[in-house]
């Protein structure tokens, strides 16, 4: 046993310092990361990428195919011609502009759901894992939450309140929290048995400090990985909700409601669904690749098994 312990130990200790270096050597992290960065850049720079107002309705230019020319009248009366890169929808709105602006909603929802559910799950999971008295009660509540289908819960929550960004974020976050709680709790349960944690107890370290100093760091790497997966799934769920017409109101473009819009004329004008669909698929794929890569980079044992 003594021959085994040091090597695995050194590996785990070295993993902390070498994680960044390892991560950049992982192709999943690099490719996924680059695509995600590109999406973030698109979302932030949307107004400067040749877009027009994504909500502007123009009945004269309905259902144009990608590449169709149009003329825009500017405020000073002059005109300028431009192209519908991705065509226009049934209300004559520019799909290209809508898709680019739609990236904002998707990424904001993905990131905030990931952050909120990780933060909430971390807090609840630490309490459930460390305090025996809380464990049974908290975990039964979590089990109950997990038994509710995520989308149905989201539909219920959104229909109770006014549909909007915040409502959607809350609706998607709540069903994600139990998964994070389970992960954190299992880590805390194993770490709290570690002699170095018990040594800290006998050193008189207060419970909050003990959790912060000795327990929390062990949860960081798995939570980063879990966070990316939550982010990807949140983007998908938002698209589904918006597609069903119960997410973000159509006045704000999101990939989901652009696709919903295009559904009626899908056979004649597939571009309305195709372009947001590609963006959605690419983003979710990239985030999942990033998560997979990070898991391998942060956990050398997993990488070796592949």
């Amino acid at each position: 046993m003594s021959a085994q312990a040091p090597s695995s130990f050194v590996a785990s200790a070295a993993a902390g310092r070498g994680a960044l270096r390892l991560a950049t050597r992982n192709s999943g992290v690099v490719i996924g990361g680059l695509i995600v960065l590109a999406m973030i850049a698109i979302a932030i720079l949307a107004p400067f990428l040749g877009t027009v107002d994504p909500t502007e309705i123009n009945p004269a230019l309905r259902n144009k195919l990608p590449g169709a020319e149009r003329t825009i009248r500017l405020d000073d009366g002059t005109t300028r011609s431009s192209t519908f890169i991705m065509g226009s929808d049934s209300l004559g709105r520019d799909v290209y502009s809508r898709v680019l602006y739609g990236a904002r909603i998707s990424l904001v929802i993905g990131a905030s759901v990931a952050l909120l559910s990780v933060a909430g799950g971390l807090a609840i999971g630490m309490i459930a894992g460390y305090f025996r008295w809380a464990d049974a009660v908290v975990m039964r509540i979590m089990d109950g939450l997990m038994a509710i289908p995520a989308i149905l819960l989201a539909i219920a929550l959104v229909s109770l309140s006014r549909a909007g960004l915040l409502a959607v974020i809350v609706a998607i976050t709540i069903p994600e929290i139990p998964r994070v709680v389970r992960l954190v709790r299992s880590i805390v349960l194993s770490v709290r048995e570690e002699p170095y944690v018990e040594a800290a107890v006998t050193a008189g370290t207060s419970v909050p400090l003990l959790l912060w100093r000795h327990v929390l760091p062990n949860t960081i790497a798995p939570l980063i990985v879990q966070g990316t997966f939550i982010c990807a799934s949140a983007i998908l769920v938002e698209a589904i909700l918006s597609f069903l017409g119960i997410g973000i109101p159509t006045s704000t473009p999101t990939w989901g409601n652009i696709m919903a819009e295009g559904r009626q004329f899908f056979r004649i004008f597939p571009h309305n669904i195709f372009f947001p669909g590609v963006f959605l698929a690419l983003t979710v794929l990239a985030i999942n690749m990033l998560g997979d890569g990070l898991r391998d980079a942060l956990d050398p044992k997993m990488a070796k098994r592949v």
Partner: peptide, 17 residues
Amino acid sequence: RKRAQIVFQDPYRSLNP
């Protein structure tokens, strides 16, 4: 906590890495 201290068996797990 100040009066009693303990040394554990496993030297690889007794210190926070």
